[in-house]
Amino acid sequence: MLTWWRRVRIENELIYLFLRSPVTQVAAAIGLLSVLGALFAPLIAPTNPYDLASFDLLDSFLPPAWVEDGDPRFFIGTDDQGRDLLSSILYGARLSLLVGLSSVAFAAVLGTGLGLAAGYFGGRLDTIVMRIADVQLSLPAILTALLVDGVARGILPREQHDELLLVVLTVAIGLSLWVNFARTARASTFVERNKEYVQAAEIMGLHPLRIMAVAILPNILGPLMVIGTVDLAVAILLEATLSFLGVGVPPNQPSLGTLIRIGTEYIFSGEWWIVIFPSAALIVMIVSVNIMGDFFRAVLNPRLR
């Protein structure tokens, strides 16, 4: 077992470099902590911020526990409605990560599929897909997201919209991110497509779908993983922005963006903790995800090392 680990440590590029990059290790630890915190929020959070009965308006605007007037029940204070901030942040991070991951997954599937097909078949399909991508790229991500959200609000009845809010949000953010995946997948597919192993499969007469899925896809996953990690940070940020603007998650389920919006209203009246702590949580999360993205990029592109 120990010798196995020793061998893996040296032979596996990813692990070898990871063990030599303390910054990435810290980032990965924070990332893991965020995921665990989000995953087990119902177990570790002191209160349930979604349960209206669990908080009291009398507790509102309490500062962190270590400050004068602080209440030991609320470690980093409470917001305008008396919700425990720590619990809100844990639940908020849960929501942010959920939306972030699912919208990246949505964008990855859509973008990779289209990019792979465009790169493999080329010609007219390629031109059409890439022109759509160009149009998409010229729209700011926020605008796309607002547009999708607005359309969804128009089509869906109000109750259903609230239920489907997370799905709408996922699609809205995913739609503004798929272009990255499509472009990368297309460019890599172009390179792989002319390699002889693909020609060998074509000569045999394998179905194009099988060639794309079994032969090409595994070979272009590397750069897509980098895009995925970097885009995860972007997606979390987008969700926070939308929630900050009030078009994101429902107000009774605060995400990090919602908390920051609430906080900004009180920043000048002295209740700094309401905006500082959710913002700090968001920043730390995004920076660590970005560092991991950079690490993946460096591993996959030896020239950057």
């Binding site: 032969a215 595994p218 070979n219």
Partner: peptide, 20 residues
């Protein structure tokens, strides 16, 4: 003929799929 005609390529580094 897809089975009866087979080909061996020039570059052994690109003619085999590295991920399989």
């Amino acid at each position: 003929s897809r089975r009866k005609i087979q080909m061996v390529f020039q570059d052994p580094y690109s003619s085999l799929n590295n991920r399989r």
